[in-house]
Simulated scan of single mutants.
Amino acid sequence: MTEAVPRGSVLEVFRAFLRLGCTSFGGPVAHLGYFRAELVERRGWLDEAGYADIVALCQFLPGPASSQTAVTIGVVRAGLAGGLAAWLGFTLPSAVLMLAFAQGVSLAGEVAHAIWLHGLKLVAVAVVAQAVWNMGRTLCPDRLRVSMAVVAAVVVLMIPSAIGQVGAIVTGGVLGWQLLPGPVAPVQGHLAIGVPRGLAVAALAGFVVLLVGLPLLAGATGVHAVALFDRFYRAGALVFGGGHVVLPLLQQSVVPPGWISNDGFLAGYGAAQAMPGPLFSFAAYLGAAMRPSPAGIAGGLFCLVAIYLPSMLLLLGTLPFWDGLRRRAGVQAALRGVNATVVGLLLAALYTPVWTSAVAAPMDFGLTLLAFLALVFWQVPPWLVVVLGGLAAAALG
Rank of each mutant, 00 (worst) to 15 (best):
Pro160Lys: 12
Thr352Ser: 14
Pro362Asn: 12
Pro160Val: 09
Asp230Asn: 15
Ser106Glu: 13
Glu110Arg: 10
Leu84Ile: 12
Gly172Ile: 01
Leu228His: 02
Val343Lys: 12
Val354Ala: 06
Thr23Phe: 13
Ala227Thr: 04
Ala56Met: 08
Gln188Met: 03
Pro93Asp: 08
Phe365Gly: 15
Arg43Ala: 12
Val156Cys: 13
Gln332Glu: 05
Val209Met: 14
Gly299Lys: 07
Ala56Leu: 08
Leu347Gln: 07
Leu179Ala: 14
Phe321Trp: 15
Gly21Asp: 09
Ser293Leu: 15
Leu315Ile: 05
Val105Phe: 06
Val146Tyr: 11
Gly236Gln: 06
Gly270Pro: 03
Tyr351Pro: 08
Leu180Arg: 13
Gly397Lys: 08
Gly119Ser: 08
Pro276Met: 09
Arg291Pro: 00
Ala78Pro: 02
Leu286Val: 13
Gln251Trp: 12
His113Met: 13
Val184Trp: 10
Val132Ser: 07
Ala288Arg: 02
Ser9Gly: 15
Gln178Phe: 11
Ile307Arg: 07
Leu347Ser: 12
Glu41Arg: 15
Glu48Ala: 15
Ala340Glu: 05
Ser253Asp: 12
Trp355Cys: 06
Leu57Glu: 04
Ser9Pro: 00
Phe14Pro: 00
Trp378Ala: 14
Ala152Leu: 10
Glu41Gln: 15
Ala49Thr: 14
Phe240Met: 10
